[in-house]
Design a protein around this nucleic acid. Structure first.
Lengths: 113, 113
DNA sequence: GCCCATAGTGTCGAAAAGGATACCGTGATG
DNA sequence: CATCACGGTATCCTTTTCGACACTATGGGC
C-alpha cells in the first residue's frame, strides 16, 4: 500500500480503528443496526453513557459519514439518527463482535477473574 | 440476559469493547494473527506505537487471556507473543475490520475530507 | 407560576491514554 | 572500553476521554 495516509498512517485495520475509536461508537452503531433511533432512545439503550458523550460521539459519527442526523422542526424537538449506507456496511464487524461477546465473555470473565 | 455483569454492565457488544478498548489492542491482535511475534517485531510492524504503550497493551491483553507471553531465559532476552485460543477466536472480528477498511477507507476519507 | 420532556451545550475537573526520553542488565561486537 | 540490540521500566508531560452538573428554549400539564 502506498504512503497516501491522510489522517493516520498504518494498515487498514489501524485506520479503521481510528474511525471507531472509543467504546461508545461501536455500541451506538450496533444499537442503530435495528433501525432509526431518537436521541433519548439511544440514551436509554446505553444507560452508562452521558448526554455529553452521546452528543459528541454522534457528531463524530456524523462527520465520518457513518450515521445520518435528521432534525424535525417540531415543538418538542425531534432528532432521529440512522445508519448511513456506509455505516450499515459495518454490520459484519458489529455482528462479529456481538457473536464473539455472546460466545466468549462469560468464560473470559471466569478465567480472568 | 441476566444481570451477571462483573466488570461492565451492558450488552455483549459493550462488554466486548471493554476488552479491546483503545486503538492498539485490535492492531496487535491483528498482527499476531499471522503467527508468533517478538516484542521488537511488533514494534516494527506498528511504527506509531511507543515501547511504553506496546508493553502496556500486551500486559492487558495477557491479563485478559487473549495472548500468551513466553519468555526464553536467554542471554539476549527473547519474549514471544502468541494469540491464545480465545484470542484467535477473535479472528472473524479482526478480519471483518480489515475487509471493511480495505473496502471503505479511501472513499470515507474522500468524502469526509 | 413551576416542573416535565426533548435535544442538546458549556464548564469544570478527574482520570486515562499516549508521547518523549532516559535508564536497566546482559553479552556480543567493534 | 564504548556501543549495540533485546525487552522492557521509570519518569515526566500533554492530550484526550469521560463523568457530573448546570443550563438553554419551547410548549404542555398541574
Amino acid at each position: 500500500m502506498p504512503q497516501k495516509a491522510p489522517r493516520v498512517q498504518g494498515c487498514s485495520v489501524e485506520r479503521t480503528m481510528s474511525l471507531i475509536d472509543g467504546k461508545w461508537k461501536i455500541i451506538v452503531l450496533y444499537k442503530l443496526l435495528r433501525g432509526t433511533l431518537r436521541f433519548n432512545e439511544l440514551r436509554r439503550l446505553i444507560p452508562s453513557i452521558t448526554q455529553r458523550m452521546l452528543t459528541h460521539q454522534l457528531r463524530e459519527l456524523e462527520a465520518d459519514g457513518l450515521i445520518v442526523r435528521t432534525v424535525y422542526a417540531q415543538v418538542p424537538p425531534r432528532v432521529e439518527y440512522t445508519l448511513s449506507v456506509r455505516g450499515r456496511s459495518l454490520e459484519p464487524v458489529l455482528m462479529a463482535m456481538k457473536e464473539w461477546g455472546d460466545a466468549n465473555l462469560s468464560s473470559v470473565e471466569a478465567e480472568a477473574a
